[in-house]
């Protein structure tokens, strides 16, 4: 049943959000700490377990894959409701702060990606990484 996949996805997200809120209260922060990330980990673990024990069929998977395929349209809708006017109106200080933060962060991506990975194995590893992800995810 398609709804089983949707239900699993929903349950994982709700559990993740509750855990994120609890984590926020625990460390005294007025925010959900990693709720979505926790939900993703739960989904990975549960769906893997259900697939290995053959309790999840292709129809149930469709319930999750549909939302995965709706991801880009939803992101477009998200972009269409950003407060772009305020971002532009913020003036040079906001613009400069935002631009510099992004540029410097971009520059650090390759530097930090190297951490915890032996220098000579880097090229091979990233190549096989790409292939692995490719075979694993076929959505979109």
């Amino acid at each position: 049943m398609v709804v089983y996949g949707v239900a699993l996805l929903s349950a994982c997200m709700l559990a993740g959000l509750v855990a994120g809120d609890l984590l926020g209260i625990l460390i005294g922060v007025k925010a959900n700490v990693g709720g979505v990330g926790i939900a993703m980990l739960l989904l990975i673990l549960f769906s893997d377990h259900l697939k290995r024990t053959l309790r999840m069929n292709a129809l149930a998977e469709q319930g999750i894959l549909f939302w995965s395929a709706m991801y880009i349209p939803i992101v477009v809708a998200m972009a269409a409701q950003q407060d772009v006017v305020a971002a532009v109106k913020g003036g040079p200080a906001a613009l400069l702060a935002g631009v510099l933060a992004v540029v410097l962060s971009f520059a650090l991506v390759p530097v930090i990606a190297r951490i915890g990975q032996p220098a000579d194995a880097r090229r091979d590893a990233s190549q096989s990484d790409g292939a692995g992800a490719l075979s694993l995810k076929s959505g979109e």
Binding site: L9, A39, L43, W67, S68, V75, K137, G139
Partner: peptide
């Protein structure tokens, strides 16, 4: 948005 983001984790 978060629902769709979580769903992308499927198969990761």
């Amino acid at each position: 948005r978060d629902f769709a983001i979580v769903s992308t984790a499927f198969g990761v």
